[in-house]
Design a protein around this nucleic acid. Structure first.
Lengths: 226, 226
DNA sequence: GCTCGACGATGAAGTGCTTCACACAGCGTG
DNA sequence: CACGCTGTGTGAAGCACTTCATCGTCGAGC
């Protein structure tokens, strides 16, 4: 049985009584997703909610012509697919594990039933949706106000904060396991542009580039640049 | 006292029992906002939720350098500031009435108290947040996949659908009361670019341009173009 | 062990949008 | 009525990013 301890650590559930969390944990099943596989696929009907326990996943939409844009990145503790659960509409995006990922899966009926009986839980969910909406709005304003160099710097700093929890933080520098193509998809620009700007940062000594990964050497400078 | 009838017509409240709606209406106060005035201002603390009864408002964020981007447009029936109410964080954007607008104002405490006692209401709010999140995500993917002409066409069609409810729909054509500058701010491009593309549409006979307004003459063509 | 695909690097050419500069029309107001 | 403000119209120049083309490199799989 999936541990209730984990659910207890989630900020958005922490203040609920233990018995409530247990009731939810009771109905959850732990599932594994190898890197590159989809937790949910665009267009399908929402039949479950996921909570990542380990790993990382990205939310992607794809255009008609095969391009894809990354809407968000999720790490441990973050719920996925909350809203498709509630409004019953087909999933508006796919969620793909970028690395080996495990997630708690809770069926739609279980969640709805659980929430209906617990107003406080509903408020908790409203809050997560609220912060998500804030983030998304922030992204839109970034897209319209900031140029590539600043968006890239900001994204790197944000990712660093996300990774910080688990990834190796050696001597103030953070290593991000991410490809330039993935970054491009997050920023809404071409892979080549990302590459060129990364090399600029690299020459400034802010980062070092390696295959499939980046090391942020001077996060402070990156942050104040962004 | 603000009418409960109006609340009853809101899709996201319609299925609640009348007494619940009345309880909410009881705590609401009707307020007027002349065109150009702010219902809420960026950075302030959220102390109330608004539901537009008449008029229209746009959600704007402003960059440091005075530019502004429009995140969303809201018409009658749509709740504003739901999430700042719940997460307690300062408002992340301003909401400005584009035309004379009246809205029901309900204090933060009243809403929270009301929701806590009504799980179904919470679910209703979750649903509105969900659809809003969908819209926002859609916007991001539009921003990264579509160029100006297509985004513009799409925006016009969307606005037409919004206005359709109330505005004059004469002979299949819809008149939008909006300036080119406002459109530019919604699309994240310059006013000049919007102007040029509008003239292209105009020469194609799809729209006619007038001061402070547009008339969509061939919505079907616009829609299939977008 | 060799091939193939994914990833990174880089330059040249093209383009979509911006910025700037200005001109003009409608409309409210002193 | 003249003035100013707001909104529209338009061209020239600039630039940020794209597209295309090519190359090197690493790692995985037959």
């Amino acid at each position: 049985m999936p541990d209730d301890h984990f659910l207890g650590e989630l900020p958005w559930l922490a203040r609920l009584p233990t018995e409530d969390r247990q009731a939810l944990a009771h109905r959850a099943r732990l599932r594994q997703f190898p890197a590159g596989t989809a937790l949910v696929t665009e267009g399908s009907v929402a039949d479950a909610l996921f909570v990542i326990t380990e790993g990382r996943a990205r939310v992607v939409v794809s255009s008609g012509t095969g391009e894809e844009a990354t809407l968000a990145m999720f790490g441990p503790g973050e719920p996925i697919g909350e809203f498709s659960i509630f409004d019953g509409l087909p999933r508006s995006a796919s969620v793909i594990a970028t690395i080996e990922t495990t997630a708690l899966m809770i069926t739609r009926e279980a969640v709805i039933e659980w929430v209906r009986a617990r107003p406080d839980a509903a408020v908790a969910i409203i809050e997560t949706l609220a912060t998500r909406l804030r983030r998304t709005n922030q992204r839109i304003s970034d897209l319209s106000f900031l140029d590539l160099p600043h968006r890239l710097a900001k994204q790197l700093v944000t990712l660093a904060a996300l990774y910080d929890i688990e990834a190796a933080t050696i001597n103030g520098s953070v290593r991000l396991k991410i490809t330039q193509g993935e970054l491009a998809s997050m920023l809404g620009v071409s892979r080549e542009s990302v590459n060129k700007q990364l090399n600029v940062f690299s020459k400034q000594g802010l980062i070092t580039i390696s295959r499939g990964a980046l090391t942020l050497d001077d996060i402070r400078s990156l942050r104040e640049f962004s």
